[in-house]
Structures are given as C-alpha cells and as structure tokens.
Amino acid sequence: MRRTAIALVAHDAKKDAMAEFAATHRLKLSACDLFATGTTGARVIERCPELQVKRLKSGPLGGDQQIGALIAEGRIDALIFFVDPLSPMPHDVDVKALTRLGLVYDIAMALNPVTAEMVLAMIEPLT
C-alpha cells in the first residue's frame, strides 16, 4: 500500500499559517509523501525540519503547474492550498488551473485550515 501523497501550496500571506498547520499536524504529515511549491516548502521545512518535503519550483515560476502535472498523473491524493482571498494574484490563471485539476481528477482539496484538518482526519495511518 502506498503512502498518501499531499501537495502543500500557500499564498504569500498564508505561508505562516501553512507552516503552523504543518507543525501542529507533523505526526500525521510524516506518514505522507509531501510535495510543495518552492517557498511554501521552504517555510514548512524551516518550521518542521523532520518532515520530508519534495520542493518544486515557486508557484509563479511553474510550481503550480508541476503540482498540476502530478495530480494529472495520479500521484497526488490531496491538495492543501491555503488561499489568500484578499490579495490580488498576478498568476491567478495558474491558481485556477491547479484547483480545476483537483476537481477534474476528484482529489481531496482543502483551501483553508479547517477543511485541511478534515482532509487529514480521513487519512488512515499505514500499518
């Protein structure tokens, strides 16, 4: 049985929240294969150095598309994407494409911490 694969993405104003979320849920996340866009991954690793996070490119430099490709390949089970609805996003098209892929491929997708906790609660630990 393969490990659950989770992609972590956070807008700039939500990166601290993502790092804190990872710290709070480090035990559950340590049982998963984690992928993250560049800066988000760096912040999570800085806060939780024990977590193994595969860092991709920064979102605006192609990281969103890299995660989208992993979703399309069936390699991601859940997307945790802390969205900042109050800040304009210069790469909004990329963000919409990523969430669209999450919907098309029917993966669990959380856009805020409360929903992310619900997604993590559904993950069964490996035996």
Rank of each mutant, 00 (worst) to 15 (best):
T99W: 09
D106W: 01
A108H: 06
V114H: 02
T99C: 13
A31N: 12
P60C: 05
V93S: 09
L70E: 14
D94H: 00
G62R: 01
V114R: 03
A78H: 12
L101E: 05
G38A: 13
V44L: 04
G68Y: 01
D64Q: 07
D94K: 00
K96I: 13
I67H: 07
P49A: 03
C32E: 11
L101H: 06
L79A: 13
D106F: 00
G38S: 10
G38Q: 12
A72G: 12
I76Y: 04
D106N: 05
G38T: 13
Q65K: 07
L51M: 09
P90R: 09
P60T: 04
A31H: 10
G63M: 03
Q66T: 07
S30L: 00
V53D: 10
T99V: 15
G41R: 02
A42P: 10
V104L: 02
L101T: 04
I107Y: 00
D92P: 05
D92V: 15
R43G: 15
V53E: 10
R47E: 01
M89R: 10
D106R: 01
G68W: 00
M109V: 01
A97L: 02
S87E: 07
D84G: 08
R75I: 09
T39P: 14
G41S: 13
Q66Y: 03
G68I: 05
R75N: 13
Q52Y: 03
A97V: 09
P90M: 03
P113I: 01
C48V: 06
D84I: 04
Y105G: 08
G68E: 02
V104Y: 01
Y105E: 11
G62I: 00
V53L: 07
F81A: 12
A78L: 15
A72V: 07
V53R: 05
P113E: 02
P88H: 01
V104S: 05
E50A: 02
G59H: 06
D64N: 11
D33E: 15
L111N: 07
A69S: 12
P49N: 04
L56R: 07
L86N: 09
L86V: 04
A108M: 11
F82K: 12
P49L: 02
A72E: 05
R100V: 14
S87V: 05
T40D: 15
V83G: 13
D84Q: 11
V44H: 04
K28N: 08
D64G: 11
L51I: 05
Y105A: 07
L70T: 15
V114M: 04
I45F: 07
M89Y: 05
L101F: 08
S30I: 00
I45D: 14
R47W: 01
L101P: 04
L103H: 06
L56Q: 08
L56G: 14
A78I: 13
